[in-house]
Nucleic acid binder design. Structure first.
Lengths: 106, 106
DNA sequence: TGCTTATATGGCTATATTGCCAATAATGAA
DNA sequence: TTCATTATTGGCAATATAGCCATATAAGCA
């Protein structure tokens, strides 16, 4: 594989990897609807605050979210408008997989 | 979080996780264009054949691809038609991230 | 200044993933 | 049957990830 192509797939894989965790997917879902601070997310996710903060760092690192400071609060939000496409594709795969498994049982 | 919701995010995370590897993204890209057998993919990916086989198992496990046997060959192909959306969203995020970093340097 | 709140980071252990080699099917040809 | 080809699986060591506690940083207030 060409070096350039390989790098491209690695870059994409980083994004997929950032999304490859249920808590981070929930956060993306929430942050897509509205800006939230770490404390809000910590309640919603139900994990340790430090854990949530690290998840957010992972998402920010790949550019899926960004943050702004307001006093002591850090507000996070989703940067791209194409996440719905992501999620709906995932649902499609999940449903199709269910159907497929039904088929193979028949 | 509700139990049902949590399970839903876990299911989605499995799909994202399956895609979270450069070799597997390459395979998806190739298999979307045309059906291929393990040997073909092994050449393209440039890893051990057993490694490729395991990657394929991971993708099949979540329903992103399926396979059919023809003699000693296993032909794999992508099952869903929405992967382009995935990839283009990834590109969007990557480009936006580049722009964002330029901005923050200014 | 000292106290409180909000967030980020260091450090650690448990667990998961990766990728190779070796071994095991499974198919077809000699 | 024996051999060659193709693919899958087991096992292992190296590496990466997850999540908690403890700690550090930073801002605002008394």
């Amino acid at each position: 594989m060409k070096e350039k192509t390989r790098k491209q797939y690695e870059a994409r894989a980083k994004i997929a990897k950032a999304m490859a965790h249920p808590s981070r997917l929930l956060m993306l879902d929430l942050l897509q609807k509205q800006e939230m601070c770490v404390n809000d997310l910590t309640e919603k996710v139900g994990a340790d605050q430090s854990t949530v903060s690290k998840h957010l760092a992972i998402l920010r690192e790949v550019g899926l979210i960004d943050s702004r400071k307001e006093g002591t609060l850090s507000y996070y939000r989703v940067t791209c408008g194409c996440l719905d496409g992501f999620f709906s594709c995932m649902e499609t795969v999940l449903l199709a997989d269910l159907e497929g498994r039904k088929q193979s049982v028949k």
